[in-house]
Simulated scan of single mutants.
Amino acid sequence: MRDVPNWVAIAGTCAGSLMLVWVALLVILWRAKPDDMTVRNAVRLVPDLLRLIKRLAGDTTLPRGVRVRLVVLLGYLAMPIDLVPDFIPVIGYADDVVIVALVLRSVVRAAGPEALERHWPGTPEGLQLVRTLCG
């Protein structure tokens, strides 16, 4: 039997590590979600979140780094290729949720919660859910 090349072993280790990190992030997000948040509420937030991200990305009063993160996020969401393919049930969209939550948390930390309030296009209840997810 031939030995496995080093790069194959390293790639396998990296892939396994990335999967563990994704699972850990999913568990953290699941535990951090509000108790009253249902799948239906989350689905209703999607159009408002997309408009929020677009508005924040276009706000020239925000720091450039924040806007760049948001533009990259919009590009990632528009790409047909994801880290975890969307055709895989549940977990296929989970990577998008993790990435959106992480980017919005960093935006809130850098720009402040007032930026969310200024640009939020949805209901006050939806804004409260987004605030909770953003910390």
Rank of each mutant, 00 (worst) to 15 (best):
G58N: 11
A115E: 13
Y76V: 08
V130R: 08
V4I: 14
P89C: 05
P63M: 08
L62P: 01
D3V: 10
V8L: 14
C14H: 07
L116T: 03
L18T: 09
A24L: 12
L83M: 10
G135E: 07
L62W: 10
D86I: 10
R31Q: 14
L18N: 04
E125Y: 08
T60C: 03
L104C: 02
C134Y: 09
R2S: 11
A78K: 00
I81R: 11
P121C: 02
L74H: 00
L73Q: 02
G58Y: 10
C14D: 12
M1R: 15
I28R: 06
R51F: 08
V21C: 11
C134G: 14
I10C: 04
S106M: 05
G75N: 10
A101M: 04
A11I: 01
G112S: 01
G92T: 05
R51N: 07
A32T: 08
I91H: 03
T38W: 10
V21H: 03
E125T: 07
V66S: 04
G112C: 05
G16I: 07
P113V: 04
S17F: 12
V68R: 11
M79A: 15
L29T: 06
I81S: 02
V84E: 01
E125W: 06
R69V: 02
L73A: 00
I81F: 12
P34G: 13
R67T: 02
L45Y: 06
W7E: 09
T123N: 01
R131W: 00
P124Y: 04
A94K: 09
A78G: 11
Q128A: 13
A11K: 00
L18F: 09
V108F: 07
D48K: 01
V23F: 14
R69Q: 13
D59I: 07
D48H: 07
L104T: 02
G12H: 05
P121I: 00
L116K: 00
L29D: 15
D86H: 11
P34C: 05
T123I: 00
T61D: 15
L18H: 07
L77M: 14
D48L: 02
P89F: 02
V108A: 15
D96G: 11
V90R: 06
D3E: 15
G92A: 03
V39T: 14
G126S: 08
V100C: 10
L127Y: 14
L73M: 03
M1N: 12
V4D: 06
G16L: 13
N41L: 13
L20T: 12
V43Q: 15
V21D: 03
R105W: 05
V68L: 13
D3C: 13
L25C: 15
V21R: 05
D96P: 02
R131H: 04
R105G: 06
L77V: 09
R31S: 12
P85Q: 01
V27M: 04
L129V: 12
A111H: 01
W120E: 11
D35I: 09
L83T: 05
A32P: 04
W30D: 11
L50I: 10
A101I: 01
A15D: 07
L20D: 02
T61C: 05
L70W: 06
D86E: 15
G135R: 15
V130D: 03
G58V: 05
